[in-house]
């Protein structure tokens, strides 16, 4: 049975990860600090009601951070890196997003040909459009779409995606 963490332990363990995640989305360091505080205020307010035996603390903290960022972009009416449709109920990711799943993704990506793996990472992690990627990878746009589809089909053989 895993140890039940205190709020202080959660803060110590996750505040750097949350800040890293926030800074991957926004460059303003002052806003980032504010958002970090907002995230952990929300975590503190809901901490007593969060059942650590049933859900992953990591996924929960991540979801709070993610939704906080969505609110930030919405208030500022700037181009959103995360659309409002991506807002997730804070307990909806239980057991789905965790290091084990990331390990599975890594193992699956390692099986891909390098070109396909690069395309997937450039598109889904770096957020580049396929048209931009086609130029970077020196292929036609139509071929890039074909390679993208092939990569997705291969990944679906190794993992289950919606």
């Amino acid at each position: 049975m895993s140890e039940v963490l205190t709020y202080e332990q959660v803060y110590n363990e996750y505040h750097k990860k949350v800040m890293g995640y926030i800074r991957s989305k926004i460059s303003n360091s002052y806003d980032a600090e504010d958002l970090l505080s907002t995230v952990f205020i929300k975590v503190f307010e809901k901490f007593e009601t969060f059942d650590q035996s049933k859900a992953s603390i990591s996924t929960w903290v991540y979801t709070v951070a993610r939704n906080t960022l969505i609110d930030y972009f919405r208030v500022r009416k700037v181009h959103e890196e995360i659309s409002e449709e991506d807002i997730v109920e804070e307990d909806a990711y239980q057991g789905i997003l965790d290091n084990e799943t990331l390990e599975e993704l890594a193992a699956s990506l390692e099986k891909l040909p390098e070109r396909e793996r690069d395309l997937i990472i450039l598109h889904y992690y770096k957020g580049l459009q396929l048209k931009e990627i086609s130029i970077m990878m020196k292929m036609s746009y139509s071929n890039c779409k074909i390679v993208h589809n092939k990569a997705l089909m291969r990944l679906r053989q190794y993992m289950t995606f919606e």
């Binding site: 890293g20 991540y62 997003l97």
Partner: peptide, 18 residues
Amino acid sequence: MASLKELFDYQKFGHNPR
């Protein structure tokens, strides 16, 4: 089940070394 986009976004938080 998480989508590819969601998993990569979570990676920006989780930082799986592999």
